[in-house]
């Protein structure tokens, strides 16, 4: 039981620290890379990582003698025993409901930003922020 506990802690730690590294790498991409398109790709990775963290908050250790289940009651019609078993095995549904809308809104916002970057390219002829910052409004 003790070694099992340590193994679970180690594997969960790998997942969490990988996500933190992803967050750091994508923040580096957003701040340090010159291309606006690369910044946008880094932004999608950052928002996805934040969403995975939100889902991870709602995860739980496996209940003894059962597997952990999605928050969907599969046995119909519901009886008190079935609902009680459902509550004792399902993961937290609230983070999933919040992330669900966040992903679709993220898509619409990313498309909006992509359109703005297209417009910047049409106006300045480049997507390199170092070149854009040197220009004073005229075309390249």
């Amino acid at each position: 039981m003790s070694s099992d506990f340590h193994l679970v802690a180690y594997l969960t730690g790998i997942v969490i620290i990988s996500l933190f590294v992803n967050m750091g790498v994508s923040l580096y991409g957003m701040f340090a890379r010159p291309s606006l398109i690369k910044k946008l790709i880094a932004l999608t990775i950052l928002s996805d990582t934040a969403n995975v963290f939100a889902i991870l908050v709602g995860y739980r250790r496996w209940p003894p003698g059962s597997i952990v289940k999605p928050p969907v009651l599969t046995e119909l019609p519901p009886t008190p025993e079935r609902v009680a078993r459902f509550v004792s095995t399902a993961v937290d549904p609230l983070p999933q409901a919040l992330v669900l809308t966040a992903i679709v809104i993220g898509l619409a916002v990313i498309i909006f930003l992509a359109v703005i970057i297209m417009q910047i390219y049409r106006t300045y002829g480049t997507t390199d922020v170092r070149l854009i910052s040197k220009m004073r409004g005229e075309r390249r």
């Binding site: 802690a9 969960t12 730690g13 969490i16 739980r60 399902a90 549904p93 609230l94």
Partner: peptide
Amino acid sequence: SYAVTLGAMGSTLPPRDLRLLAKLYL
């Protein structure tokens, strides 16, 4: 991750039980 498992940054384990709010929703 191994350092974290040994207790460098507290526990990273997910909880065994859900919060009351999640239980009520379910």
